[in-house]
Design a protein around this nucleic acid. Sequence first.
DNA 1: CCGTATCCGCGATGATACTG
DNA 2: CAGTATCATCGCGGATACGG
Lengths: 121, 121
Amino acid sequence: MAGGSQITQADTETRYEVFHTDCPARDVVDHITSRWGIWVLISLQGNDLRFYELRESIRGISEKMLAQSLRALVQDGLIWRHVEPTTPPQVTYGLTEFGREVGEPLGELFDRITQRLGSRP
Amino acid sequence: MAGGSQITQADTETRYEVFHTDCPARDVVDHITSRWGIWVLISLQGNDLRFYELRESIRGISEKMLAQSLRALVQDGLIWRHVEPTTPPQVTYGLTEFGREVGEPLGELFDRITQRLGSRP
DNA sequence: CCGTATCCGCGATGATACTG
DNA sequence: CAGTATCATCGCGGATACGG
């Protein structure tokens, strides 16, 4: 896809195609934009976290959904998973380079929204 | 929120808070990351579109979900809606400035993923 | 052309309990 | 601590029909 950052008509036309095909990108996007994916990726920006830290960061997420989201994102290559074989085991998650590339625009997105809405009560 | 684009520990800590509160940002993010929101926003980048054009661009979307997605995004101030009172009426949709701000990182996100996956069969 | 209204299945989601 | 297993539910999203 054209390397530039300018949005041209041609770029947009090209993008359309992706909506029809069974392009793998669609699956990845679906994972990222799944109910919890975006929050996981944002949480991991700037710092790696343990499972329980993620669960406590993202209020409202269940262990099941967290595990499920993590598995999908690890599978997609956005997140790495490191197991320290102690007892009890310690599992740490962090962003891969791909994950950082993807997380960056997500952080932008999020910051622009909060800024525009004048959040932070 | 801190104006810089560097991801610092402090920035990340601040973001955590948003996951707990009933910050309006969360609703907007949920709309954007809803099943069809992202595709609508990406479709409208660079060109305004009519209802049927959107439906045809985004293969697989039903009229119901398209209308619903559009309503939510108009409500959120990301999209404008213009009605030309002809018969039959012509309705056009496009991105507001806010929508463009939000759409830009989404386009980035999308391009990075397709690029990484070497898509486009 | 641009929707809204209605019905309904099914999968995502959550609560709970249990294991290594 | 870091999950899996199981089950109940609930609302998203699709199909269809109809209205302005």
